[in-house]
Design a protein around this nucleic acid. Sequence first.
RNA 1: GGUCUCUUGGCCGAGUGGCUAGGCACCGGUCUGCAAAACCGUCCACUCCAGUUCGAGUCUGGAAGAGACCUCCA
Length: 490
Amino acid sequence: MEHLLHLYNTLKRKKEKFIPENTPFVGIYVCGPTVYGDPHLGHARPAITFDLLFRYLKYLGYKVRYVRNITDVGHLENDADTGEDKIAKKARVEQLEPMEIAQYYTDRYHSAMDSLNVQKPSIEPRASGHIIEQIQMIEKIMENGFAYETNGSVYFDVENYNKKFSYGKLSGRVLDDLLANTRELDGQSEKRNSFDFALWKKAEPEHIMRWPSRWSDGFPGWHLECSAMSTKYLGKKFDIHGGGIDLLFPHHECEIAQSVAAQGYDAVNYWVHNNMITINGQKMGKSLGNFITLDELFTGSHKLLVQAYSPMTIRFFILQAHYRGTLDFSNEALQSAEKGLQRMLAATATLDKIKATDTTTASIKNLKADCLQALNDDLNSPILIAHLFDAVKNINAIAAGLYTINKADLEELKNIFQVFIFEILGLKNENTMSSRNEVMSDVVNLMLNLRIDAKARKDFETSDKIRNELAKLGFDIKDKKDGFEWTLLK
RNA sequence: GGUCUCUUGGCCGAGUGGCUAGGCACCGGUCUGCAAAACCGUCCACUCCAGUUCGAGUCUGGAAGAGACCUCCA
């Protein structure tokens, strides 16, 4: 399977040629959401980034197993391994079973992902469904001497681990620096060092989510679930681990430590991180309270939004930036994405109406190679989109009679659009008519035909009235040489 | 404080040591009863200072500003 896909590997700090561990199989693990709140714009970024990777790898012919977890236990509210479980807290506040909370927000997440046309992962494991695997992993780590128990809780012994392996190679952190920075143990702590992290936490009496173990009734640490579930489903050595760059430290660093401590080597070949979405230059996040949920974006119900934005607009907005750069939210940027997307999708419709001629004068020769090259260069979707816009320009010019295209080239062009816009970028036309709407469609056509008649009579008062009233209802009407076109905005 | 990253035109956002990124907006034109769309064209750029180079927004050094991580976060 010869290709030139290169991915930026955070571990090596450079782009590397992607070579799977076991061609043609590819294993990807991506950190999914902690389901205690509505998914926001930030969640859309890794979902769409790795959806693009998933789709492209499949296009290249790989058999991809994509695992994205649901964190429904173990993610603590506060600082290092104290504080309340996020989901348990929400459950207590709303007087529900923790699993009711998890289920509710999992459903919300799924629904948002469906709207964004994000393909479902091959496996979507839940942390709470893998307690046994996590306990087994802790036992392994303890056997190897890299964990210790205190009062029923088990902690990872970072200092001891660092003697044999090196802690911090992903995030570029040096343990001595961490030591120097955080040497303030209050004696009360169960941890030997502040940077040690919990593998198992003994549950306080009021803690609702708990499982029995040989150490205590308790629950697993947050970092553990990803290590346990990724290796369970993808093997002890798999290809790609993805996630937001904010998870790089400590979460992913700890994952590496856990895997190495348990099995002697890291499970991951390529660490791939998407950057953050910012708002006014600042990271959009829960803690800052400056996030906009996807639902709010879809409905326009947030004070910062001047209008609603469709899921495809959001998707296009995200794909128009490279995944490793920050992307700044603004109404202006969303609106320009909306228009750009509209133009691109309009061209796909135009493409279906183009008639082939004997010769091709439009320049589409290198289009496919250019598109592939863009994706091969660390998934450079903005470059890909730029090439597609060049094609849009050509398509419109052909439609306007400025260029011509022959049959073979037209088929090729249609194929390229199908593959890159719909299959790989995962865009879709949101205005496709359901059968129920066909009647309405006929009515609109009827009105517009009346308008044509009125225009023929030079009864512009009537023709404008029809157009303006339809426009008020949300119809976008364009006159053509041979009739009209309309779409229903919103 | 430590580690790291970024600074591109009105806005968003790519990229490379020398050749137009792209989108949106604006302006002029073609088309149209008008408008929209489409097409053609114009305009607008690489934070600052110094260096390397025949040539740097692209490499090096410095300055300023911004951000991320170091605590939960996609």
